[in-house]
Design a protein around this nucleic acid. Structure first.
Length: 292
DNA sequence: TAGGCCATCTGGTCCT
DNA sequence: AGGACCAGATGGCCTA
C-alpha cells in the first residue's frame, strides 16, 4: 500500500486523526460569551439539525416562533412539521410527501436575508429520504445511481421557492430582545450588551446570520454528499465525519473501478481492496453510530 | 449519566 | 470597511 493509500486508510479508520474541535460535553460558563441559552429541541428523529431555528427567531409569523406559539416547549412540535428525518422513510410515508407538508410562511430566504435559512421542505433536491441503500459489493457495484444531487441546482430551486413564497417586504434583523422571554437573566444580559468588541450589536447579529447561513450551506452539502455515498442500511445514521470517511473510501473505489489510479497514488491497491475498505468503513461508521 | 454530535454565537484573521 | 472563513465555546439532544 502506498503512502497515500495509507493516508487514506488512516483517514478512514483512525478516529484519533479527527480530533474533536470542541470540548464536547464541557458545560462551562463563559463570562465573555454571555450567549443566550440555546433552545435546541431536536427530537429523536433525524437529522440532527434545527431547520427552522432562524425562522423562529427572526420571523415571528412562522409556526413555532416565540410569537406564534409561546414558549420553548412548542419548538419540538413545530419542528415535527418541518423536519424531514434522516433516512426515515416511514416518516416520509406518514406525511405522504413533501407536498403534503404545510410549510409556514417564509417571508424571506437565505439568499436574500442572512439568517433565514429555509427549512427542509423548501429544499426538494436536498432532503428526500436521507438514507439510500446502495448495493456495493465487489461482485456488483451499483453504478446506476443517477440520483446524485446536483447541489447547485438544488440551491437554485431553493432560491426559486423562496422567491415564490417571498411576498413580503424585507424584514430587518430583529434584536434578540424579542426572543427567549423565558430566560430573563440571559435576556437582560444581552440587553445590556451593546457592543461586541469592535462591532455594533446590529453588525454582530448580521454576522451571526451570515455565519448561520454559511454553516447551513455546508450542512446542505453534507446532506447531498450523504445521498451520494453508499450506506450500510437504509436507516443508518451517519455523522458528518462518517460521511467524509465513507466518501473518501467510496471515491477511491470508484476511481479504481474507472481505471483511474488517482495519479498512481493507489496503484498497489486493488479494486477489491478499495471495496473492502469502503465496506468496512461503512460498517465501522455504522457501528460507531449505533454504539452511542 | 457521560460522551458524541450538532447548531449557534463569537471574535480573530484574511481577502476584496 | 465589510464579508468570508475559521476555530473555540456553549448548550441541547440522543444513546449506550
Amino acid at each position: 500500500m502506498t503512502e497515500d493509500a495509507n493516508t487514506c486508510e488512516r483517514l478512514t479508520s483512525s478516529p484519533e486523526n479527527y480530533p474533536s474541535p470542541t470540548g464536547q460535553g464541557s458545560v462551562k460558563s463563559n463570562s465573555l460569551m454571555d450567549t443566550p441559552t440555546r433552545k435546541n429541541k431536536r427530537k429523536s428523529s433525524e437529522p440532527r439539525k434545527r431547520t427552522d431555528f432562524s425562522i423562529k427567531r427572526f420571523c415571528p409569523d412562522s409556526p413555532g416562533s416565540a410569537c406564534s406559539e409561546s414558549g420553548k416547549s412548542e419548538d419540538a412540535g413545530s419542528e415535527d412539521s418541518v423536519e424531514t428525518p434522516r433516512g426515515n422513510s416511514d416518516r416520509l410515508e406518514q406525511t405522504g410527501s413533501s407536498d403534503s407538508i404545510s410549510p409556514p410562511s417564509v417571508p424571506h430566504g437565505m439568499m436574500f436575508y442572512p439568517g433565514h435559512f429555509p427549512p427542509a421542505y423548501l429544499m426538494p433536491g436536498l432532503h428526500p429520504a436521507y438514507g439510500r441503500v446502495h448495493s456495493f459489493t465487489a461482485a456488483g457495484l451499483d453504478l446506476s445511481n443517477n440520483n446524485i444531487t446536483n447541489y447547485d441546482e438544488s440551491v437554485h430551486k431553493l432560491n426559486e421557492s423562496v422567491q415564490l413564497s417571498n411576498n413580503e417586504p424585507p424584514q430587518t434583523v430583529q434584536d434578540d430582545d424579542n426572543i427567549d422571554d423565558d430566560d430573563n437573566e440571559s435576556v437582560s444580559g444581552r440587553r445590556n450588551r451593546k457592543n461586541y468588541k469592535n462591532m455594533t450589536r446590529e453588525r454582530r447579529i448580521e454576522a451571526n446570520a451570515r455565519e448561520r447561513t454559511r454553516v447551513h450551506t455546508i450542512s446542505a452539502a453534507f446532506d447531498a454528499l450523504r445521498k451520494a455515498v453508499p450506506s450500510y442500511s437504509y436507516n443508518q445514521k451517519l455523522s458528518k465525519l462518517a460521511i467524509l470517511r465513507i466518501a473518501c473510501s467510496y471515491i477511491m473505489a470508484l476511481g479504481k473501478l474507472a481505471g483511474d489510479d488517482l495519479n498512481g497514488k493507489v496503484e498497489n491497491v486493488s479494486f477489491a481492496d478499495c471495496v473492502d475498505m469502503c465496506t468496512s468503513t461503512i460498517q465501522t461508521e455504522g457501528r460507531a453510530r449505533r454504539r452511542h
